[in-house]
Amino acid sequence: MFNSTFNGLQKGNQPIRSSEGTGGTYFMQDSSQEFISVFKPIDEEPNAVNNPHGLAVSPDGEGLKRGTRVGEGALREVAAYILDHPKGGPRNLSSEAIGFAGVPPTVLVRCLHKGFNYSKGYEGSLKNVKIGSLQMFMKNDGSCEDMGPSRFPVEEVHKISVIDLRMANADRHAGNILFRKGEDGQTVLIPIDHGYCLPENFEDCTFDWLYWPQARQPYSLDTIEYINSLDAEQDIALLKFYGWDIPIESARTLRISTMLLKKGVERGLTPFAIGSLMCRENINKESVIEEIVHEAQDSLLPGMSEAAFLEAISEFMDSQLDKLAK
């Protein structure tokens, strides 16, 4: 993917900016002018200095979704790929093996090209180098906005739910789930756009699949086995190994969301039931997981450790889930 993208630029194939979305997204071509990857520069994110859609620069650094920061979208895109483990366990990042949920291979790169957006003009110097996420372009037949969800296989919807619940995704809508027909005629779903996952809080978590009929079906034994194998501490260490020392607040989100997912399936809860605990019913009413976090915070004495806080979260979560499972 990386070499093919570079060869395409060397051949003179221009980046093609997408007209969709709120940030700068560029389709990159290989030497034969086939789409090979998608590049998202961090300085063209919504509310960043070179945003091509005219969105104002964030006054306090907060992104469009609460609990996210402008300029961290690329890191979150790469993190979603790193943490989308195949069933056999974490992959080597140099491998393009597809994980459980099917997040396309994604890496962090530097790129210099006059075809990107520069609010102060392009000079061709090193200061114009862009840093961003480069994701493999996945051939598809459209997005889930283009067809009714009743046609999606249950397991395909469930795999999307697992990555979204784990990562507390704050931007899962039908437009950023692609679909394609496999060789066997079955529909395959492909999750993209993970720049708003692992937020610092759960305020903006949203999952379109929550309202699809498949979300009310129980997880299969294979999916439950995969969920049980997840380990938030190993995931945090893995992200650090690959260069992202994840913020304390986002690490906490990953620990809590993984805890909720694992405890939920232990009680036989469906994706709908678990997701409903993480998402708000409306913008003014806190979600159940937000209430649990606040209860745990109120129960602790000043200076208590993160481990003590997570233990309190676990106890309050058990109480809520036991009521739901009855």
Rank of each mutant, 00 (worst) to 15 (best):
L75Y: 13
I82G: 03
Y122K: 07
E62Y: 06
L126Y: 11
G67Q: 03
K139C: 00
A56Y: 10
E62Q: 13
A101W: 15
H158K: 15
F100T: 11
L108S: 12
E156V: 03
P104W: 09
F116R: 01
G71W: 07
N50M: 11
E72D: 09
Y118H: 02
D146V: 04
F137V: 12
G67I: 01
P104A: 03
E72N: 07
G61D: 08
G102F: 15
P90G: 13
G132N: 08
G61E: 01
M147Q: 15
A101Y: 13
P52M: 10
S119G: 02
K114F: 03
S95D: 13
E44W: 11
F116L: 00
N128T: 04
S133F: 02
V103P: 07
G115H: 06
E155R: 09
E45I: 08
L134A: 09
L83Q: 05
F152E: 02
A79M: 11
G115Y: 05
G88L: 07
I98Q: 05
M138W: 09
N128C: 03
E155F: 15
G148R: 15
F100G: 05
M138H: 13
P52K: 09
G102P: 10
K130G: 04
N50H: 14
V57F: 14
A74M: 12
N47A: 08
I82V: 10
P52D: 08
S125W: 11
E62C: 07
K159L: 10
D141T: 13
K159E: 11
M136Y: 10
I160W: 10
N117H: 09
L55S: 11
P104L: 00
G115W: 05
E123K: 12
F152V: 11
E123A: 11
P59H: 01
G124W: 00
A56M: 14
V157H: 14
S150G: 14
H158Q: 11
V154Y: 05
H158C: 09
P153E: 15
K159V: 09
G124L: 02
M138E: 15
A48Q: 06
R151T: 09
L112Y: 00
I160H: 04
S133L: 05
D141Y: 15
P90M: 10
L126A: 06
V57L: 14
V109S: 06
L112W: 01
P86K: 09
T106A: 14
G61I: 04
V107H: 03
E45D: 12
G142V: 14
E44Y: 01
D141N: 12
V157S: 12
L93K: 13
A101T: 12
I131D: 01
L126P: 04
L134R: 07
V109R: 06
T68D: 07
G121S: 08
I160C: 12
G63Q: 02
E145Y: 15
H85D: 06
T106N: 12
P104K: 05
P149H: 04
G124D: 00
V154K: 12
D146Q: 12
E96N: 13
K114C: 02
C111H: 00
F116C: 00
D146T: 14
C144E: 05
K120M: 01
G71S: 12
L64S: 14
I131H: 07
P90K: 08
P86R: 12
V78I: 03
N47Q: 11
P52I: 01
L126D: 11
E72G: 00
Y118I: 00
R66M: 02
K120Q: 00
N92A: 08
G61K: 05
P46A: 00
I131V: 13
C144K: 06
L126E: 07
N92T: 03
A48H: 06
